[in-house]
Design a protein around this nucleic acid. Structure first.
Lengths: 220, 220
DNA sequence: CCGAGCTTGTGCACAAAGTCACAAGCATGT
DNA sequence: ACATGCTTGTGACTTTGTGCACAAGCTCGG
């Protein structure tokens, strides 16, 4: 698609959304141009890293001037594949699931809530955010109607793998797992994990080893 | 405390909580011993990495046998500093804040909710989970009463830095930031960031570059 | 007491990520 | 047209993380 196409390192990919968020803010402030140094400051990283990261997308800067915010924004969206909104289906209407469904931050940033499903008959039919909880049996149909769609697992750990299998079977190709459990998926499916308690434990470590402990880190 | 004390790499620290979770499960199943190979399988990593990670904590395995689950569990909790529960104060009672406050996964894993505070007078006094929302002015008092405590920022991006400053002033030494914004803290304060929309965007990238894309990775 | 069979702990080689420093190149003013 | 001042893009180097392969060492059976 791009004459370029060198492979983008994982560490860089993890930072691109952060740059994207900043570029959107800059564009809203009608700022036309930004230097790598300024971008680095806003992202909390070093300027050389910003330049190297951006160079993987292509040569979009102007020496002596900086980067055109709107143009870079366009290219960044292109690279990240967020040119169109991508609906999200949440599995699990427990505390976490309802929380995620209500969280406006998803829709605001291009990931509207398409549906919430739950295996518990008692929860089916209740309202969560703007949608009504549907039974698991509707999953395949909901996925088909909204493709491409991202699946979010917000169930207890023990059923996470089962849910993942059903998502994959339904045709979902990207999954975000909030359940504290390992899930495996076929190699052509994208999978990421977020474990909230795990983050607190990492903080706990650096808190009790307070000599030279930087708990931050790019990561993601 | 330990004759050992070699510095533990960040990448290893990020994996320790995952091992901890698995060890707790194994202990619940009354499994007395585990090999690095089995642990690796459960954690979704390679066995050599498990052994190297664990070796940073000390020499707790037995050759030809494996690791004693209970003993390793004890040492792991020690290393992570999660020997006692550590209360959490959530700032922001919006969708995300209420969600986190209701999320049982925190309390279940040793991080009980101590309080929720919000700057909006209209929200003060309402109930969230087991607690009542308190005004920001109570923050310092709440922190003092619960030390050591972890602060969780669940506010909109623009006020995140302000909140972080107040948390630090109140004596919090570890902060988990859910707001989509960069916050800086003094070097002796531990800080981690979780941005939910950012995770979805990373998935989006790998979804649109589906050649050889592993969106997973140890991470976090 | 000794040998067989596992599993740990680690040295080493390699891969990935981060940092530095500087040539290349654009814009502006004279 | 040319010199000046900035900022990019990138090659070389450092640091960090990963994976292999194997010696060290434990247990158990005979």
């Amino acid at each position: 698609m791009d004459g370029h196409a060198r492979r983008i390192p994982d560490a860089t990919v993890a930072r691109l959304p952060e740059y994207l968020r900043i570029l959107i803010e800059l564009a809203e402030q009608r700022i036309g141009t930004v230097s790598s140094e300024r971008l680095a400051e806003l992202a909390g990283v070093n300027a050389a890293k910003v330049r190297k990261d951006l160079s993987y997308l292509g040569t979009y800067g102007t020496r002596g001037v900086g980067y055109d915010v709107d143009y870079l924004l366009f290219q960044m969206r292109q690279a990240l594949g967020v040119t169109r909104d991508c609906p999200v289906v949440v599995v699990g209407a427990g505390n976490l699931g309802r929380a995620l469904a209500n969280y406006a931050g998803f829709s605001d940033r291009g990931f509207p809530l398409a549906a919430v499903v739950d295996a518990d008959e008692a929860k089916v039919g209740t309202n969560v955010g703007d949608v009504t909880v549907r039974p698991m049996s509707d999953l395949a149909e909901l996925v088909r109607a909204n493709q491409p769609v991202i699946g979010v697992i917000a169930t207890p750990g023990p059923v996470a793998q089962l849910v993942a299998d059903q998502l994959v079977a339904a045709g979902v190709t990207a999954i975000l797992n909030f359940a504290p459990a390992l899930v495996s998926v076929p190699p052509n499916i994208s999978l990421r994990k977020v474990d909230l308690a795990l983050e607190l434990q990492i903080l706990s470590f650096y808190q009790s080893h307070r000599e030279s402990g930087s708990a931050s880190r790019g990561w993601t």
